[in-house]
Amino acid sequence: MSQKINKQLVDQIVRNVIENTSETDQAILFNKEEKPQSSDGQQISAENQVKNFTPENDPNFKQLDWFEHVGTVKPGREKEEVVIAVSPAFAEVFRKTLTGLLHWDVLRQLTAGIEEEGLKYRVIKIYRTSDVSFCASEADQISGSGISIAIQSKGTTIIHQKDQEPLDNLELFPQAPVLTLETYRAIGRNAARYAKGMSPDPVPTVNDMMARVQYQPLSGLMHIQETRRVQTGKDAEEICLKLD
């Protein structure tokens, strides 16, 4: 402040400030133009946004013959099993992955990979979360071997082990666009090998940096739809697959 401070001026300013200030602090709301409004002039709040769907009110939900719900999941006793957890919208809301692989085909390859190694599989549907890591960590808790695979509708897949932190993994396949049916079979195979106590070579994947650029927005949109099918507090359900 280079100029000399003018006492009268400050005095006047103080008076003005006092006149414009009420006893208590009030919410300072800016002029109405700053409040975003919808086109019809209505103020929008979070309350009138879309609520999550349940199968009953979900326009895209389809009951499938090959994907039968057979009750709440139970912990597995057999060490010879791998649990495959699918996300809330899998198969019954979405039918394809981000790159168009049918969920039916993906499950067939994952299960075939497990069976090839002489192990059994159980498929469960998760409702609590749409996050692939948390799907997997819910599944490995009930997996007899402690090994689970989780897959989201868009195709993102993880192999997880019981003693790991949720966001840790044995193998993570974060780039759904580069996964092929062969990759899914290899993922099933490797999960079974971990369940047998082996240390398999990780499934090789292609690193296509442009895949993310092309698919990330679409991937976001699919995940939003998936997340709308999350049901907090709802236990996972056992699924009986009829793939033949």
Partner: peptide
């Protein structure tokens, strides 16, 4: 709001002191 001239002067003095302090 009831504020006397004396109080205004006090506040003014404080504001000036604060401004000068910052300047220093």
């Amino acid at each position: 709001m009831n504020i006397t001239d004396k109080e205004v002067k006090e506040i003014t003095a404080r504001v000036i002191a604060a401004l000068e302090d910052r300047e220093d």
